[in-house]
């Protein structure tokens, strides 16, 4: 259902961007996660969206038969999910350290390097 997925891609982008535009560091990271999901859906849309046709060759045969979902977007998304996990976990830990050091997660208070003492 292309239309449905396209609409959700848009909604996820909008929600992600809105969260990125907040002042809180936590919201920024949540925004990144939402945006990442939106990107994955967008790539997924470029496949053929077949129901019940996973790109897996049946036990008995040597080549795939019948309609099957495009494997390349899937491979790309798989990579993307894993990489974004790396990014997210790093960001979350960084957030924790930042808060320990500067005692705030308000981006407006940590936008210079030389003010806090």
């Amino acid at each position: 259902m292309h239309l449905l997925l396209a609409i959700f891609t848009g909604i996820l982008y909008a929600a992600g961007i809105y969260m990125i535009l907040r002042r809180s560091l936590v919201k920024l990271i949540i925004g990144l996660v939402l945006l990442g999901n939106g990107v994955n859906l967008l790539i997924f849309l470029m496949g053929s969206l077949v129901k019940g046709g996973p790109p897996i060759i049946p036990e008995a045969s040597k080549v795939i038969e019948g309609p099957f979902d495009d494997p390349i977007p899937q491979a790309l998304i798989l990579t993307a999910i894993v990489i974004s996990f790396g990014l997210q976990s790093f960001a979350i830990i960084l957030l924790k350290r930042t808060y320990q050091v500067v005692k705030t997660d308000d981006l407006d208070e940590i936008n210079t390097t030389d003010e806090f003492a």
Partner: peptide, 30 residues
Amino acid sequence: FYSAPDLAMTQFTIDTLTVILFVLVLYRLP
């Protein structure tokens, strides 16, 4: 539903991990 079992498994695992990580860190935040 759209024939991507590998993706579903990865997404499930990773999402769970992210949420757990977040929750673990959360209690120290402002």
